[in-house]
Design a protein around this nucleic acid. Sequence first.
DNA 1: AAGATTAAGGTCAATATTAGTCAGAGATGG
DNA 2: CCATCTCTGACTAATATTGACCTTAATCTT
Lengths: 155, 155
Amino acid sequence: MEEKSISDIIEKYLKSILADDEKVEIRRAEIANHFDVVPSQINYVIKTRFTLQNGYLVQSKRGGGGYIRIERVNLIDDVDVLDMLINTIGQSLTENDAFTIVQTLYAEKVISQREGDLMLAALSKETLSVSARQDADRLRARVLVAFLNRLRYES
Amino acid sequence: MEEKSISDIIEKYLKSILADDEKVEIRRAEIANHFDVVPSQINYVIKTRFTLQNGYLVQSKRGGGGYIRIERVNLIDDVDVLDMLINTIGQSLTENDAFTIVQTLYAEKVISQREGDLMLAALSKETLSVSARQDADRLRARVLVAFLNRLRYES
DNA sequence: AAGATTAAGGTCAATATTAGTCAGAGATGG
DNA sequence: CCATCTCTGACTAATATTGACCTTAATCTT
C-alpha cells in the first residue's frame, strides 16, 4: 500500500489520471524528467504495471511528435479484449500473472473479493504443484481460462 | 508468560501494532536492525507465529521498496462442515463427487451460487483433464481442498 | 525526391535493493 | 542426553534503477 519506490509513485500518478479519463497520453521524456528518472524507467513502469493483464492497452509512436498512450479497457465485457487476454495467457501461466489478472477483475468489480480469493486458492502454486512446474503453469492457464469463460457467459 | 527469546519480543511488538491496526507493514532489514538480529530471523518469527491458523495473512515484496505486510483475518466460526468435507475428500475425487460437495456447500449457505459455479468451472472434467483420469481426480481433490481451506477465514 | 538531421520512444544487460530459503550451530527444557 | 526451539549466515530469488545502444518518424537541406 505504501508507495516506496519511484515506480510505484509513477504508477499511482498515471492511474490517478486514468481514474478520471479512460486514456492518458504522455511524452516519455517529460514524465521521466518530472519524476527525475531515466526515460527507460517509464518503459519499466508500463511493462510491469500497465499490461493487458492489468487491464490496460498501451500504444506508442516514436520519432517527432511521439507519445505513449495508455488506455483502460474492460476485460470481461469487451469480447475482443477478453479474447486477447485469453490469447495472452496461452498455454501456460505463472502464479504471479494469474494473481495480477484476478486483481484486475476485482478492481473492475467483475468479481467480489471473496470470489477472487477462491480463484487464487485454486490457482496457487501450492495447489497446482502436483507435478513439474511447467505442468502446473499449463494447468493454471486452463483453470483461469475456465474461470474467465464462466464469467463471460454470466455477463 | 515471560518473553524469553528475542523472537517472542519481536512477536509481541508486531502484535501490539496489530492490536490497534488491522495490518502492519515493515521493512525486514529495519526491524532486524532495531532488534539487533539477522534479517532472516524475521522470517522465522513470521513463519512460527503469524500463520494462517493463528489468524494472520502475510504478503511481501522484494526489491526496491520491498516490504512485509502482516494482516489480521477473522477465522470463521463453524469450520465443522469444512472439516467434515475435507476428511471425506481424501486424495482423489471424481467430478460427480465434487459436484455433490459443492451443492452441499451451497445448501449449507457456506457459498453463493455464483461462487459454486466458479468452483465447478475449475473442478470440471474438461478443465482438469490435462493428463490421465487418475491424475485429474487427484488434482480435483487438491483444488477443492484448497477452496475449502480458503473458506475457513475471511480477510 | 534523397539524404541528413533531429526528435522522439524501445531494448537489454549490468547493477542495486530488497526479501526468502535452508542447513546447521547454539540454547533451553525435561 | 535428547528433543525442540532459536538464531545465524551463505546462498537464492524477485524487483527496481540506470545507461549505453538501437529503431522509428518527422523535418530540414540541397
